[in-house]
Amino acid sequence: MIRNLKYEPRVLMHTKPGKAHPLIQLVLTRKTTILLWLSVVFFFAPILNEVSAQRRFSRNYPATRNVRLQLLNRSGTVEVEGWDRPEISISAYLENPAANIAPQSLSGTIYIDLVKDNQGRNGVGNVNFVIKVPRLSIVDIETRMGNLSVTNINGGLVRAMISTEGDITLTNIGAGAVDAQNGIGDIFFDGEMRSGGHYRFTSIRGNINLRIPFNSSFRLVATAPSTRNISLGSFGNSNMNLLGNGRSVVGRFGNGSSTLTITNHRGSISFIRR
């Protein structure tokens, strides 16, 4: 409603009276209404701006190529994306009651700890992050609740952990180590596995889907004891062994130069060829 009020007078102000749309001309004749609208807009506009300023937090930090981002959120979504600039850009959208947020930059690491910053507070609204980091960054993000996504990262480590519910989506990742862990929710990994790398995916319930190139090379331990739903797709071969009546698949793909450990207590595991 307020949006409409704000929008329409703007249209009017930017419209030359001679070329005005018939509808606008009709409105223009009712000058009193317009004036009333305008006064309402001018009265509320500064307040609206102030509210939205409180709800949005943004900060940039200069960063080295392999900076580390360490984030602990309480609830809300976190999106981290790699870019080609030597800086970290943090935008946070704070829902009411707005959380306290105080990032710190210490010896090559950006720390954001919303649990610590809001300890002892009774209700804290969701905080939704959009963060841009250099592609070679180490990304270590954790939340108590809410989705996590990481895109275009090729650094030493990507760690994403959700204590309870939420999906983890890791897209276009070429990190040397990946550790993704959630409670109830899906995990999707789309990326490449480096030789000598360590990859670990753990969930209590949900689907774990890995999309990796066919020339990947890994030693696998995949366990889905409850569903026994482990689908290797094109990655199934004679070096893979079923253990415990199909609760676990253990084996090697390619020359086995990286390690891949997948555990899904009450959900499924599947491989997709990239």
Partner: peptide, 15 residues
């Protein structure tokens, strides 16, 4: 808050 409590309980139950 309730949302946090529910999520915690559901997950604990699942484990």
């Amino acid at each position: 808050d309730n949302k946090m409590r529910d999520a915690f309980d559901r997950n604990l139950n699942e484990i």
